Simulated assay, not measured.
Amino acid sequence: MVICSLSIVPLSPAEEVIHLANGEWRPFVSEELKYGGVFSRIVSDAFALKGVRVVYHFMPWKRGEVKSREGQIDGSIGYGMFDKFKQDFYYSDTIFSGSKVFFHLKSEPFDWNTYDDLNGITMGAVIGFNFGAVFDKAEKSGQIQVTRIENLERLFKMLIKKRITVIPLTVEIGYDVMNNKLFSEEAQLITHHSKPFFNTTFHMILTKKIAKNKDMLKRFNEGLQELKDSGNYDKYVAESLRGGYIIK
């Protein structure tokens, strides 16, 4: 399915158009959120300031990555900075900075300092979620034990039932699940450890197979800076954090 996000500036009939893959990754992007989520709104409005209209194609993330890499669409949004993408994609300036932490039950004391402290701790994570090279190496070597499933809400149910001990997750995503998918009495049982195990930045990626994208990247970065300078960027992020993009 395709949506066209709203923008903060009027667009002329002669506007340029860019096609971007998008997906489900609440609270940052979702077809079920206003504007397609805060990331979608930021990208749309940054481009709109430079006379470019964004058309979003919502699809599974892997499919969007493949279509972008092959040049079937221009790119995608919400990607971390990974070397494996740099050969095929241009990376935008930072759209958002986030921290990944461990969620756990308040009734189950949990503390950690190094990955050695995590040995024997049963973790639950979503298939395909990336938590950085150090975590990936520890998981593959067996230093940490991670149960991977497809459903994020189910992970939190498993945590409540003590079938797992911690959930590694970006702070905002964890609390979005707790506030919108769990009963309030369930959410009150859960907290997160203050020490991040990974800090990351999120970006738009544009395929190098499409010649115009080098210029599009430059225009987007300029528009993003203008959006930040105007104060609208901070406004959009604040709205998202207080649940302002949830469709009642």
Rank of each mutant, 00 (worst) to 15 (best):
D88F: 15
Y115G: 01
F89E: 01
K140I: 04
K84C: 06
D116Y: 02
A125I: 01
F110C: 07
D117H: 08
V126N: 03
V101Q: 03
G80P: 05
L118F: 07
M81C: 00
G98H: 10
P109E: 15
K84A: 05
D83M: 09
F103N: 05
S107Y: 09
T122M: 12
T147C: 10
I127P: 07
I77Y: 09
L105Y: 05
M158Y: 12
E108V: 15
M123P: 10
N130R: 13
E139A: 12
D93A: 06
G132L: 11
I77N: 08
S97Y: 10
D93V: 00
L118S: 02
S92G: 08
G128Y: 01
R148F: 05
F156M: 12
F89C: 04
A125Q: 01
S99C: 01
T147D: 12
D88K: 04
G80V: 13
K140F: 07
Q87K: 14
P109V: 10
D116I: 04
N130L: 11
F82G: 02
E108D: 15
V146Y: 03
D116E: 11
W112Q: 02
F103V: 05
V126H: 04
K100H: 13
G78R: 04
D136Y: 09
Y91A: 10
L152F: 09
G98W: 03
Q87T: 11
S97R: 13
Y91R: 13
F89Q: 01
F102C: 07
G78F: 06
F110M: 14
R154W: 00
S107A: 12
G80M: 09
G120F: 13
G78Q: 03
K86D: 06
F103E: 03
S97I: 07
F110H: 09
Y90F: 15
Q87W: 11
K86S: 11
E150Y: 02
S107R: 12
F89P: 01
F96Y: 14
M123W: 08
G98Q: 11
K140G: 05
D136Q: 02
F82Y: 15
G120P: 00
V134F: 11
E108A: 15
G78E: 01
F156L: 08
I73T: 00
T114I: 08
G142M: 09
S76N: 09
F129K: 05
V101M: 12
I73R: 04
Q72F: 14
I121P: 10
I144Q: 04
D88P: 09
I95N: 07
D116K: 12
V126S: 03
V134Q: 10
S107D: 13
R148L: 07
R148Y: 03
I73M: 05
Q145C: 09
N113C: 06
S97T: 08
I144W: 03
F85I: 03
V126E: 15
S97K: 11
S141Q: 12
Q145H: 14
